[in-house]
Design a protein around this nucleic acid. Structure first.
Lengths: 195, 195, 195, 195
DNA sequence: TATGAATGAGTGTTCATTCAT
DNA sequence: TATGAATGAACACTCATTCAT
C-alpha cells in the first residue's frame, strides 16, 4: 500500500523549509540544497514535487496568499454586515498573525521584487492586488457613490500596504495594534465624508 | 598622467548601467558582466571603482536616495511655510519624476527585499525611513499636539509608501496625480481634525 | 540508490590527478579544472568531495604522509631490535619508493613552502617533523644519554631531510643508495661516539 | 639633470618590498599591486624595471644569493687556511644573519618549489647547489682522497641544507648556534676518518 | 518514491600586463 | 620616468538540474 497523501506532506514540509530559508538567507541566498537540508530531504526531491525552483517559490507564495484570503474570509464572515465593520475586518485580516512573521514578511518583500520579472509571480501579485481593491471597493460602494468608493478603496488599499511595508521594514516586532488603529481611523474619515 | 576626474564619470556610467540592468533582468539577474557590457567597459573595472558587487548596489541606491532627498529639499524650499504646503511638498517629492521610472522603481523594490539581509543596505533603508517620518512629524507638530503629530506622520508616511508601492506594482505608468491627490486628501483630513 | 563506496574511489582518483598536475604545472599552476580534466571528472565534483582547493591539497599531502608513515612502520617492524638496525630502517623509509617520484617530491617542496602561510598545512608539517625527530630520539636514547640522543636525533633528521632535499632538487633520478649510504654512515659515527 | 642611480634605488626598493610581501602573503599571495603599494610606487613601474613578475622574483632571489655568496667569501677570507677552519667558515656563512630572517627563509622555500617549474629559477638553483658542493669538495680534497672528499662534501652539503630547512620550518627563531655546532661536529667526524 | 552523485555553465573576483597621459 | 586606469583572461566556487540506482 503506497503512502497516502505523501505528496501533500512533502509539499508542506518543503514550503515550510523554504519560508525559513528565505528568512535566514534571503531569496537570493536560498538554494535548493539549503531547503532540502532543512526539510531533511534529498536535493533531487524538490524538482520531483515542484518542477523547479520557480515552482517552489510560486507554491510558497500561493501558500501565503491562501492564508491571507482565508483570514479575510473568516473575519468578514464573523463581522457584522455594515460597511464599517466589514472594512475593519478586511483591515484586520491583512495584519493577521499569518502575515506578520519574519519568514512571511521577507517572502512578501522578495515576492514583490521578483514579481517584476517573473510572469507567473506577476500574475499572482496582480490577482492579490485586485482582490483587496475589489473587496474594499464593494464595501465602500454601499456607503457612497461609485466614483468616491473607488477612490476610497485606492486610498485604503495603499494605507494597508504602506503600513504593512513600514512594519516589515522597521526591524522591530510588528505593532499590529497601531497599524490597525491608523487604518481604521482612515476608514472612519473616509466614511464620515459621506454621512 | 592619467585622466583626471575619470573616477566620477565612470561611477556615474556604471550606476546608470546598473539601474537599467536591474530594470531588464532584476537584481538577481544583474551580473557584473551585464552591467559592464551595457557601460561599454571591461568587467574588472567594476571592482576597481566599487570594490565588489555589493559596493555597486549600495552606490546605486545611494544615488537614488540623493535624488529623493534633493527633490524633497528643493520642493520644501519652494513651498510656502505653512504646514499644509510643506506637507504637500514632501508628498510631491516622493512622487518626483526621479523616483517613478521603471529602473528606479524596480531598484527600490529590490533594495527593500535585499535590505532585510544586507547590513549596509539595512542601514541605508533605516536612515531613509526615519528621514521621511521626521520630516512629516516636524510639520504636523506645528499644527497639533506632539502625540497626534506622531500618529499623523506615521499614517501619512504609510500612505505615501503604500501609494508608491501599488503604483510600482501596477504594471502601468505611474499615475502620480491620482496618488498625490489621495495623499493630499489624507493630509487635509488629518489637519482638519485639529482645527 | 547511488553507487556505494564511490566516495573513496573518487577521492583516490582526484588525489592521484592532483599529484600529477602538480608534477606538470606546479602547485600554483594547478587549477581545479586541470585536476578535474585529468581525472575525467567535472570541476564541480572537487568541491563536492574536498570542500575547496585547500581541502584537496591537504588531502593530497595527508596521502603522502600516510605512505611515509606506513613505510616507516613496515620497515621498523621488519628490522632487528637493536638501535642501529632500527635507525637504518627509519632512514630507508624516508627514501622509500613512495617518496621519491617526481610528483611526490614536487608536492613535498610545494607543501613546505605553502605550510608557512596555511595553518592547516603548518599543523600537518609540524606533526611530521616532530614524528621523525621522536622516532630517532627514541632509538638513539637506547645507546646514549638523553642529551646526546637528542642532539644526534636533530643531526640525523637534518641529514635525512637535507639528502632528500638535494636529491629532489638535483633534477636527476634520485640516487637513493648514495643517500642511504651517507645517512647510515652518519648513524655509525654518532653511535661510535658512545660505545 | 636626470636622477642618477634612480634605477638601482628603485630596484632595491622593489626587491625589499617583494621579500616582505612574500613573508606576509606567501609567493602565491604576492601580487604586483601589493609589492608596489609597499614600495610606495605605482603598479606599472614594476614591469618597467623587471619586465614582468618572474623577473622580479628572479631578481629577488639573485639578491639573496649574492648575500650568501658574499658572506661565504668574507668568512673564507677571514678564516685560517686549514681545511677545518675553511669548512667551518662555509658552514657559518650558510647560517649568516642575511639568510635567517623570515622573509628570506620563506623566499628560499618558495624558490625551491618554484624552481622545479621555472627554467630561469632552476638554473639559479643549480648554480647555487653546485657552488656549495664545489666549495666543500675543494676543502675536503685537501684532507682526503678525491672520492672520499666528494662523498664528504655531499654529506656536509646535505647536513647544512637539512639544518637550514628544519630551522626554517620550525616556526621558532632560528637557533643558529645549535645548527652550526651540529654541522661542525659532522665536519670533525668526517675529517677524523682520514687523520 | 527517493537518493545524492554528477554535471557544467555561470558568477564574482583577482591580477599581470598594457598604455595614454 | 612615472602614473594608475583599463583590460580581459583565468580562477575557485556555486548551484539548479539530471539521472542511474
Amino acid at each position: 500500500m503506497p503512502k497516502v497523501g505523501m505528496r501533500e506532506v512533502r509539499r508542506a514540509q518543503l514550503i515550510d523549509a523554504t519560508l525559513h530559508t528565505i528568512d535566514e538567507a534571503g531569496l537570493s541566498g536560498t538554494t535548493l540544497a539549503l531547503v532540502a537540508q532543512r526539510a531533511n530531504i534529498s536535493t533531487g526531491i524538490v524538482s520531483h514535487y515542484f518542477g523547479d525552483k520557480n515552482g517552489l517559490i510560486e507554491a510558497t507564495m500561493r501558500h501565503i496568499l491562501r492564508d491571507l484570503w482565508a483570514a479575510t474570509a473568516r473575519r468578514r464572515t464573523a463581522a457584522k454586515a455594515d460597511p464599517r465593520s466589514r472594512l475593519r475586518a478586511v483591515v484586520a485580516a491583512n495584519f493577521d498573525v499569518s502575515q506578520i512573521s519574519a519568514p512571511v514578511m521577507k517572502t512578501w518583500l522578495a515576492f514583490w521584487s521578483q514579481s517584476m520579472h517573473e510572469p507567473s509571480l506577476k500574475r499572482l501579485q496582480h490577482v492579490n492586488t485586485r482582490r483587496l481593491y475589489s473587496n474594499l471597493s464593494a464595501e465602500f460602494g454601499k456607503a457612497m457613490p461609485r466614483t468616491a468608493a473607488r477612490r476610497a478603496a485606492g486610498g485604503l488599499a495603499a494605507m494597508i500596504d504602506g503600513l504593512w511595508l513600514r512594519g516589515a521594514l522597521s526591524g522591530e516586532p510588528f505593532d499590529t495594534k497601531a497599524a490597525i488603529r491608523l487604518a481604521n481611523g482612515y476608514v472612519d474619515m473616509l466614511l464620515a465624508q459621506h454621512e
